[in-house]
Amino acid sequence: MKQHPQKKVRTDLNPSRLLTFKIDERDVSAHEDESILTVARQNGISIPTLCHLDGLSERGACRLCIIEVKGVAKLLPSCVTFPRQDMEVITNSERVVTYRKKILELLFTERNHVCSVCVSNGHCELQNLAVELGVTHVRYPYLYPRHAVDASHSRFSIDHNRCVLCLRCVRVCDEIEGAHTWDIMGRGITSQVITDLNQPWGTSETCTGCGKCVQVCPTGALSEKGKSVAEMIKRRQFLPYLQMMRGRQDDSWQK
């Protein structure tokens, strides 16, 4: 089973080294195979994320968790960056905070996030991030693409207008459920998540109807039919457990 090369299987013969480094001037200690994001959160330091979800592989794609490391010119995604002894990490410099805001604004312009009519209103991670990062408006022009809603599945529906292409659904379906019903078609700005051969979800031959994709979706893109706004709370606590039980450590971190 593939796993992120820097996350090793800890055994007596192959122990994980402990090291100390600094996050925002604070001394922290960590295993060498724990990502900076993990260590930061263990220490109560919050770093915003969108594509990351505990229990799924890392993609390093949304770029919201970027951090600065002293002596490194490039900004690094904390979810796939691993600590070194005496490294100095800064998670909240003005530089990264500004960039995070701008990236989030770009995500808002990409699809049609009309929050007031969204099933996830109040439980939406994209919305929460806007509050967290202090985004009160979006400076870039909205793109207003034309996207469809697929409600052909008997229990679920997908509204591509609200999709942020985090690919959590693709990963959970592949890594945890093992069905790989979801994937992403096209490239660039025309990318879109699909079921099977880009067919209506209801006609998918591979979907088991487990609904995990709905549970992991950060926005109102994937939702359960017949649920009201207030009921649209996601259950995800089972993910790390299932990841462990099914022996799939970071299977597709390079997707």
Binding site: F108, N112, H113, V114, S116, T136, V138, Y142, Y144
Partner: peptide, 19 residues
């Protein structure tokens, strides 16, 4: 002051923008 979502994001009136 941009007062409310429609002034800030075009919100509901903006739902026609795809067409």
């Amino acid at each position: 002051v941009s007062f409310g979502d429609c002034a800030i994001t075009a919100n509901v009136p903006g739902m026609r923008n795809r067409y």
